[in-house]
Structure formats: structure tokens, C-alpha cells
């Protein structure tokens, strides 16, 4: 039915060396993305200062929010959704957009029993670490998806 094993994760052909820069210096994403891109065959630069004319994966903004999803009959929240959104862009060495600025938003639901909150913090911490890994994968997938077709 036409399915075949995927060939290599296709990064933009003339990408050249790439650096991952985040506006928030304490963000976990740059290191995780650098590792994943390196595994996918990219040459990742890790200087302290952002270098000028090389390709740059820009993490422009990261936001977390935990919002109640369902309320019980006493007006108490019983389910929450942990949401994580990242805005990023991939610029070529010449500053042109390879992957235009866009946002990815992930959401995971977790139950929180109003009368006994033991363990909600640890479940939410676990979810946030898993969502950081999943965000790294979806950013790289979005780069792969956007760079498959010939440059417009």
C-alpha cells in the first residue's frame, strides 16, 4: 500500500551549521533540540555568544498554563489540562525563513481529586518533563515536514 521505511530525517539540504537560541536563557529547549538535531545529522554550534551568519533555530517564546477542564457539582476543579506552547522559527544563514515563525501547543489532561491533592504536583512535574521532550520532537518533525518540499 505504498508505505516504505522512512529515509533519513530530512533537514533542509543547504542548512549548514546551525545554532539553537532561546530568548529565555534558562530554557531547557536549546540543549534538547541541539542533541536531537545532532542525532539527525546536523552540525550544531554551541558557542556562548550567538554567531552571526549561520542558520539559527530561534525559540521566541515559551508559555505554560494549567487550566481547569471540568468542574464538579460543588464548583471544584476535578480535571486540569497542562498546556505548553512554544513559538519558534528557523532562519537560514542568510536570514531568510526556512521554517516561518509559528507556534506549537501541546496539552495533557490530568485528574486532580479536589479532596486529596497528594501527588498532583509530582504528576504535573512528570507531565511537564514529558511535554518538553515531546515539544522537541514536534519542532524537529515540523522542520522535517516543512523542508521536504522544494523551497517555495
Amino acid at each position: 500500500c505504498g508505505f516504505h521505511l522512512r529515509n533519513a530525517l530530512s533537514l533542509p539540504p543547504d542548512l549548514g551549521p546551525v545554532q539553537v537560541v532561546a530568548r529565555d536563557p534558562y530554557s531547557p529547549l536549546p540543549d534538547a533540540l541541539a542533541l536531537t538535531l545532532q542525532r539527525a545529522g546536523a552540525e550544531v554550534r554551541r558557542g556562548r555568544r550567538a554567531e552571526e551568519d549561520i542558520a539559527t533555530l530561534n525559540i521566541l517564546s515559551e508559555r505554560w498554563a494549567s487550566t481547569p477542564v471540568s468542574i464538579d457539582a460543588q464548583g471544584r476543579a476535578q480535571e486540569y489540562a497542562l498546556r505548553y506552547a512554544v513559538v519558534f522559527e528557523l532562519l537560514g544563514a542568510d536570514g531568510e525563513d526556512i521554517v516561518p515563525q509559528q507556534a506549537i501547543e501541546l496539552s495533557r489532561d490530568y485528574v486532580s481529586s479536589p479532596t486529596d491533592l497528594t501527588g498532583t504536583d509530582s504528576e504535573r512535574d512528570l507531565l511537564s518533563r514529558e511535554m518538553e521532550r515531546e515539544m522537541t520532537a514536534s519542532i524537529v518533525r515540523r522542520i522535517d515536514g516543512a523542508s521536504r518540499q522544494p523551497m517555495p
Partner: peptide, 24 residues
């Protein structure tokens, strides 16, 4: 609708340093 509203996307200086909400 969006955690990062599209109108923020435009000007690129999406305010990312608002501290994490006091998560329940």
C-alpha cells in the same frame, strides 16, 4: 484560544517571561 495568541506572533516579541501561572 491560543496560549500564545496569533497577534503576539506578529510582533515577534511574544512576552515569554511572564512567570509560570501558580499551578494548582
Amino acid at each position: 484560544l491560543y496560549l500564545v495568541p496569533p497577534s503576539d506572533l506578529g510582533n515577534g516579541d511574544a512576552d515569554d517571561d511572564n512567570p509560570i501561572d501558580p499551578l494548582p
